[in-house]
Simulated assay, not measured.
Amino acid sequence: MPGLLRGVARTAVVAGTATAVSNRVSRRQAGRWAQQDYEQQQQYAPPPEPQQYAPQPPAPAAPPADTADDMTRKIDQLKQLGDLKAQGVLTDEEFEQQKRVLLA
C-alpha cells in the first residue's frame, strides 16, 4: 500500500508541475504575440494629429443702446469665459484679460 500511495503522489506532483509549466509557457507566448501585434499596429498607425485648441471667444461688439440688454449680454459672456477657464481652455491670465476687455 505505501508503494501505491507514493506512486499516486508522484504522479500528482508531476502532473501539477507539468500543468504549471504549460500555463506559464502559454502566458509567455500570449504576451509575445500581444507585443508583436502592438508593434505592428504602431508601425501602420497614422501619426497622431496635433492637438487643436478651442477658438478664443470673440471680442465684444460695440455696446448696444439698451443697458439691460448690454448687462445680460456681458453676464452671458462672463459665464462663457468662466466655463472656458473651468475646462482648462483659458489660463488665469487669459481669463482676466478677456474679462477686462469685456467689462471695459
Rank of each mutant, 00 (worst) to 15 (best):
Asp83Gln: 14
Glu49Ile: 01
Ile75Ala: 12
Thr67Phe: 02
Arg28Ile: 06
Val89Lys: 10
Leu78Val: 10
Ala34Gln: 12
Glu49Tyr: 01
Thr72Glu: 09
Tyr44Thr: 08
Pro58Cys: 01
Asp76Glu: 15
Arg27Ile: 02
Arg100Asn: 10
Gln29Cys: 02
Arg73Ala: 12
Leu78Ala: 15
Pro60Gln: 09
Ala86Asn: 11
Thr11Gly: 12
Leu102Arg: 03
Asn23Met: 11
Val21Gly: 07
Val14Tyr: 09
Gln52Gly: 04
Thr91Leu: 02
Ala62Ser: 12
Val8Ala: 15
Tyr44Pro: 00
Gln80Phe: 02
Thr19Phe: 08
Gly88Trp: 04
Asp37Ile: 05
Ala104Tyr: 01
Ser22Ile: 00
Gln80Ser: 13
Pro55Gln: 13
Pro57Gly: 06
Pro63Arg: 08
Val14Gln: 07
Gln36Ile: 11
Asp76Leu: 11
Pro2Glu: 15
Arg6Val: 07
Ala65Arg: 11
Ala54Cys: 01
Ala86Leu: 09
Asp76Phe: 09
Pro55Ile: 04
Gly31Pro: 01
Asn23Cys: 08
Gly31Met: 06
Val25Arg: 10
Pro57Cys: 05
Met71Cys: 00
Gly88Gln: 08
Pro63Cys: 02
Pro63Met: 03
Met71His: 06
Pro48Asp: 14
Ala9Trp: 06
Leu78Asn: 03
Arg100Ile: 11
Asp76Ile: 01
Ala62Gly: 05
Ala30Gly: 06
Leu90Val: 03
Met71Val: 07
Met71Thr: 06
Ala12Tyr: 02
Met1Val: 14
Asp69Gly: 11
Ala18Phe: 05
Thr17Ser: 13
Gln35Pro: 00
Lys79Tyr: 06
Ala104His: 04
Gln51Asp: 07
Tyr44Gly: 11
Arg28Trp: 08
Ala20Asn: 02
Gln35Arg: 15
Tyr38Phe: 13
